[in-house]
Design a protein around this nucleic acid. Structure first.
Lengths: 221, 221
DNA sequence: AACGAAGTGGAACGGCCTTTCCGGTTCACC
DNA sequence: GGTGAACCGGAAAGGCCGTTCCACTTCGTT
């Protein structure tokens, strides 16, 4: 079980060195492009960023799904780790609220990640399986906080996921100020009881107000 | 200033009767199609539903914007009325929470409305002007609740709009159960103080869990 | 260094959606 | 009822984007 067997996994022969390098370039490009344009980004944009031809992208990842899954597999680890870390915090409420803030910001910064986490399922069984690795971690986070009596007992780990997804879609990448306010309000709503609201930071004089706080980079129609 | 002047407004002559009727049919169709497919819906779909040719839609509304604006002008009135009604409620908290629930559901039921309210601005100056009619009404709602000491004093009317928009995007039209839970949590977060959480209705055994709770009717990719 | 297999780029193809255009029809007015 | 202007439908043109394909290049091997 070593050395030069030509098949490394499932009978597939290893990629030639240049192909392997291109695969990496494509994944890096896709991460970047998906993050800013979402999962619908064109393959030619990815190819352009990667510095390869479109054909190369299609040969390596014949379906969009293949690319999404390969990327997601890398990214989900970070999220799981973060959730476990939060669950291990000696102060369960701090763990919870830090995870919430972090989760919201990472989804806001990466449209692709947000879309995979929210729309996963439907056909992407591999993605669904990966995503489910997140569930026990979040569940543990929720239970710790509930046992400590700080988190309302009638919310579940799915509610928490929903809340993160929801908040992560507020504003563009640059409107962390808006999201931060709303996260604070939601956390106040998740608490078992409190005597006064957690103070909100002021919104720095936004001229355009409510306009364009969702889907800020849509093509004009 | 009466009778037969050929120009009724801004020098435009009145439409022929059949044209006027078609205009109405198109608006009705557009309302319906925008509600389910969002503002990106194709003009031919609208034409099909209206029972007219595509050409007719284009002649009456040369730009998509014209159609959106004409529709929005009709719909915003309802929202404004509802906000004023809520502000006039003798129980300010009840007014606020009923408005929140209603606003969230109406946006969830009408993707087009949600998109106009959120993305308005950019170029649609007519839409922006209409939308601003909503502001004083919501402001009054907020102030009543704050003067009564039930709504936290550090949120503004823009926060409220943001919250409605955000919650309205959770789940498909059929997942009012999920939205209802989250609205309750957010309301608990908006309250000045409370001793115990408002109880949440249980989520009716959702098998698919978190999957597909956002953008539930996207084209498969 | 020479050969064959694997890999590459990007032009070309095809489907989809938006927009235009025009022969025929309907309406309003005389 | 006749006339002309306004209006209509839907076919066709045009543009955009995802996908395929193949002549050429690169790599690994002998």
């Amino acid at each position: 079980m070593s050395s030069v067997t030509p098949a490394n996994r499932e009978g597939a022969r290893p990629l030639r060195r240049d192909a392997e390098r291109n695969r990496g370039l494509i994944l890096d490009a896709a991460r970047q492009v998906f993050a800013s344009h979402g999962l619908d980004a064109g393959f030619d944009e990815i190819a352009r960023v990667a510095g390869v031809g479109v054909g190369t992208v299609y040969r390596r990842f014949p379906e969009r799904r293949d690319l999404v899954e390969a990327l997601f597999e890398q990214e989900i680890d970070v999220v799981v780790a973060r959730a476990e870390e939060a669950a291990a915090d000696p102060d369960p409420w701090r763990g919870l609220s830090e995870f919430l803030h972090w989760g919201v910001e990472s989804q806001a910064a990466d449209r692709g990640l947000a879309e995979v986490l929210a729309a996963a399922g439907r056909g992407h069984e591999r993605v669904a399986r990966e995503r489910d690795r997140l569930r026990p971690a979040v569940l543990s986070l929720v239970q710790h906080a509930q046992r400590a009596g700080v988190l309302r007992p009638d919310v579940g780990e799915l509610d928490l996921g929903l809340v993160v997804a929801m908040l992560g879609r507020v504003g563009g990448p640059e409107r962390a100020d808006l999201r931060h306010r709303l996260v604070t309000v939601v956390l106040d709503g998740l608490a078992v009881r409190r005597d006064a609201p957690t103070p909100l930071a002021a919104v720095p004089a936004s001229e355009d107000d409510l306009a364009c706080v969702f889907e800020p980079s849509r093509p004009r129609r």
